[in-house]
Nucleic acid binder design. Structure first.
Length: 473
RNA sequence: GGCCCCAUCGUCUAGCGGUCCAGGACGUCGCCCUUUCACGGCGAAAACACGGGUUCGAGUCCCGUUGGGGUCACCA
């Protein structure tokens, strides 16, 4: 694989299928992918589908689609945690056999009582199972618990968090196998990461505390310790972990509902919590070249939709006209109440150079394109109606005549005609151009009016003007 | 509450002991361009949480305070 003697880097992204790809998880996945790509290693994907109820194929597809759309791929096939349950149990039993874990027969009531007592005495609760020290087995259901170390301390040299130390007395004997024999997440991740050959565990820092307990399993099994990197979570406007409460959306919503381009979200997520000097606009190739965990900040960052949209506007301006037309055609169609014909999509492509500097998301882009396809008589919004009052119908009639007389229908020619109309009428250009805009588009804002004239074509333009001009002239 | 982590403009960040009366970007506010709205250009306001150390010298190192966050399941 790699020609150098460097040990291979294997990262993994392990989302659980909850029905959507949380923006924070997407960033963590992006970081883990970038780390692997930067180091020429492998990026793996594992679906944590242990919770069978939530793990529908549909929920899984949402994640896979979201990642692909973002431009994050993975090496080999995706892994499904649920397929390894037998192996997880096998490891648990091996741990028991070697005295690193034990069968605990404590009932839920006993556990609850202990927890309450600890609470009452205002001291932290730690499971004290008599079976840890070999009490005789009892009848009934049992779980398998890890015999966690109680002396000394555990140190993790985290690539993002630095050296973190925890007293082993803080760790307790966590459940490895439930009473129904199924593995807990704690056991499953450790076993899967080991079996998949994961060298770098890059995940959200909400797992930092778990890392110490998981490391206990790794050590008990005598497996090589992975390198950990716990990246800070994304927070909402109030500084708390981003969640539904903040209206946190899945990646698909940014694509479908907010009209965000994948390269914009990629760039935004990359810059959130990571920086490379003063660089703001960063391509995927540059990201792979520059990215490293060392520059990832330790403090959580807040999600700012304004900056995302600014970046989105940038990428819209850079995007290919045909691509944009294809992306907004369905949206424009929805706005005007019918599908766009092929010729109309071609018109959209031609209009795109004028349309795209004026939009920061695909919805705006679509909205701004509707004037091209509206049928007469146009509907006029309030501002347009105002522009069409007073002297405007008279001015429009004069403009109509000048335009009608044109041999050539171009931006240059129409501009000359409209300018001379204004001059002849003794008014400023704007006094003719604004009513013209209103008559042509139904709105008070639009692309340059001479471009609009050309895009609409001679017949449609003259007809729209005629609709609003003073017929007496 | 215990444990762990964090702390530069409103937000994302640059800064890795002196070149910082702190730089860039978004946002905000002006001005320019201009037929509107954008784009673009120019400019402005805006931050090293606080207190002790260490040092000739601290945004940069150490300690504490305050503030914020994360985590404490037979959930993942």
């Amino acid at each position: 694989m790699s020609a150098t003697a460097q040990p291979e880097v294997v990262t993994r992204f392990a989302p659980s299928p909850t029905g959507f790809l949380h923006i924070g998880n997407a960033r963590t996945g992006l970081f883990s992918w970038l780390y692997a790509r930067h180091h020429g290693g492998r990026a793996l994907l594992r679906i944590e589908d242990t919770d069978a109820a939530r793990s529908t194929q549909e929920a899984i597809d949402v994640i896979l689609d979201g990642l692909r759309w973002l431009g994050v791929d993975w090496d080999g096939h995706e892994y499904y945690q649920s397929q390894f349950h037998a192996r997880h149990a096998e490891v648990a039993h091996e741990l028991v056999a070697h005295g690193h874990a034990y069968r605990c027969f404590m009932s839920a009531e006993e556990l609850a009582a202990g927890r309450e007592k600890a609470q009452a005495e205002r001291r932290p609760y730690r499971v004290e199972s008599p079976w840890r020290d070999g009490a005789p087995a009892r009848e009934g259901p049992f779980v398998v618990r890890l015999k966690a170390p109680r002396e000394g301390e555990t140190v993790i040299d985290d690539l993002v968090q630095g050296r973190v130390t925890v007293q082993n007395a803080e760790l307790d004997d966590m459940v490895l196998l439930r009473s129904d024999g199924t593995p807990t997440y704690m056991l499953a991740v450790v076993v899967d990461d080991h079996d998949m050959g994961v060298t770098h565990v890059i995940r959200g820092d909400d797992h930092l505390n778990n890392a110490f307990r998981q490391l206990a399993i790794v050590k008990a099994m005598g497996w090589p310790e992975p390198v950990y990197a716990h990246v800070p979570l994304i927070h909402g406007f109030d500084g708390a972990k981003l969640s539904k409460r903040h209206g946190a959306l899945g990646v698909d919503a940014y694509r479908d509902e907010l009209g965000i381009l994948p390269e914009a979200l990629f760039n935004y997520l990359l810059r959130l919590g990571w920086g490379h000097g003063d660089d703001e606009v960063i391509s995927k190739a540059q990201a792979i070249e520059w990215f490293d965990l060392a520059q990832v900040g330790k403090s959580p960052s807040r999600f700012d939709i304004k900056k995302l949209e600014n970046l989105n506007g940038h990428y819209i301006r850079e995007a290919d006209d045909g691509r944009l037309a294809g992306l907004i055609a369905p949206r424009t169609g929805k706005l005007i109440g019918r599908d766009l014909a092929t010729a109309e999509i071609e018109l959209l492509v031609r209009a795109m150079p004028e349309l795209k500097p004026r939009a920061k998301n695909l919805n705006e882009l679509a909205e701004n394109s509707t004037f091209l396809f509206r049928t007469r008589p146009l509907d006029f919004d309030e501002k347009a109606t105002q522009l069409l009052a007073g002297d405007s119908p008279r001015l429009l009639a004069r403009a109509w005549s000048a335009l009608y007389a044109l041999d050539e229908w171009s931006a240059l020619a129409t501009e000359a005609a409209v300018r001379s109309t204004a001059e002849a009428a003794g008014v400023k250009l704007g006094q003719v151009a604004q009513p013209l805009r209103a008559a042509l588009t139904g709105r008070a804002t639009s692309p340059g009016i001479f471009d609009v004239l050309v895009l609409l074509g001679r017949d449609e333009s003259l007809a729209r003007i005629a609709d609003r001009m003073d017929g007496a002239e």
